[in-house]
Structures are given as structure tokens and as C-alpha cells.
Write a protein that binds this DNA or RNA. Sequence first.
DNA 1: CAGTATCCTATGAGATACTG
DNA 2: CAGTATCTCATAGGATACTG
Lengths: 127, 127
Amino acid sequence: MRHDTSCAGSHFSVDCPSRLLFDQVADKWSMMIMTVLHGGATRFNDLKRRLEGVSQKSLSMTLKRLERNGIIARSVIACTPPGVLYELTPLGLTLLPPFQAIYRWANENMHAVEAARNAYDRNIGSA
Amino acid sequence: MRHDTSCAGSHFSVDCPSRLLFDQVADKWSMMIMTVLHGGATRFNDLKRRLEGVSQKSLSMTLKRLERNGIIARSVIACTPPGVLYELTPLGLTLLPPFQAIYRWANENMHAVEAARNAYDRNIGSA
DNA sequence: CAGTATCCTATGAGATACTG
DNA sequence: CAGTATCTCATAGGATACTG
């Protein structure tokens, strides 16, 4: 089985790995979940509390998708009250540094992006 | 004006910069566009050809959004036939390294992700 | 606690046709 | 060439209610 990236040079075919990544694991919630899990295994409702604004459904779906892609692991702890822990897999851990680079960029360049947006919107208005 | 990231520790508030980033500039098409533009200023239809599967509408919208956020610049060249060039801004250039880290991860870990997915789907079937 | 199921709506995105 | 406009449809996602 070949694993042609099909993205050589500057042509991006439909089966480009980067598409898979952005379709499956590089969204907003995924990044936040992984960042939280980096601090240790976490319960469902703890996650929900930390990810302000996430709906139960979105969280549930995102967790399942991340689990399916081998990024996080789900484990049931038999106790009362029953609980479930989510944690990063070794594979998931390797994704953290790239995400942190993105996250760092976001923090460092928020101002510039906001300024650009304001400038753009002003020009639209006066165009 | 304070620029509280509101994401200290492991709580992600609604105005977290990373959310802005993923909402505005960290999607699939954006990353591919930026990668192409890294090779030099490019015309609209050239971009369309290289991004297999992108619709004219999606490309147009994504370009406008990136321009609004200060990531790329649009310049009209007065000639026949008339043309438009898109290129990365200095700000856009700074986003490239983080994106390349993601891209590299995708290429290196495609196999593992696919394997995880297959395993997961097999277990679902036999559960 | 940790979800699933259902309903409903807003947005995303393709296809197509048209414009400066 | 470089888009915009419109139409349509599929999906993502929130709210709510229910279950093991």
C-alpha cells in the first residue's frame, strides 16, 4: 500500500493528509480538549465545565471522534458514583507541540489580527 | 484595553484567542492557500486549480476572510487580461511555521491515525 | 455521572448562471 | 480573468428531554 501524500509541490489533492487532519482532529474543541487533557485525565463533566460554551452533544461527538482517531483514550472507572476518564494517548501527546505552536501564535498575534480586521471593516464602510 | 487571554490554566472562555484563530484562519482551505502562497503570489484561478475540490465560492470566501484578518493581501494588476494576485502578508508569514508543524505531523502520523480508526471501527462492529 | 435521542435552525458549501 | 448572486441541499450544532 502506497502512502502518497498527493500534496507534493503546491498541488493539494483530495486525499491530502492535511485535509484529513483538519477534518478530524484540528478543530476548535479538539484543541481545547487536548490542552485540558494535557493536565491529566479528566471526566466528562469536568471537561464540559472548562470548555465554556460547548454543548453536551458537541463535546460528546468530539470526544468520540478523537477516540476513534487514536488521539485520546476513554476508560470507565468502576466506583460509586460511576465515572469515565479521558486522557491523551501517546499519539495524542505528539500532536500537542504543533497545537501549542498554533496556540502561542494566537496569543501573540491577536492584536495584529484584530487591528487588521478593524482596518478592513473601516475601508469597506468608506468604500 | 486589556487583552486577557481568558484561557489561563485549563479554562477556555468564549473569547479565548485560540477560538478566534480556529474560527477565522485555521481551517483546511486556509492552510492550503497559505502553503501555496508561500511559493509566491498567485492568481485566483491558479489557486483554484491547485486546491483540488474547492468551489469558486468557498475559495472566494476563504480568501476574503484571510484578507480581512490580515493574513493575505490582494492586489489588482492593471494589464490585459486583468488579473489579481494574492500573497502572504508579513503577519501571514509568521503563521506559516506553526502550520507547517501541523502539516508535518499529519504526514508523519497518517498511518497511526488510520490504524486507530480501523481498530476502533472493527471493535464497534464486534461489540 | 455520563451520556443518547430527538427536534429544530443556522450556517456551509456545491451547482449554476451572470457581471465588470 | 475574477469574481458575485442565487438557489438548493446537507450538515453542524444548540436546546431539551430522557436513560443506564
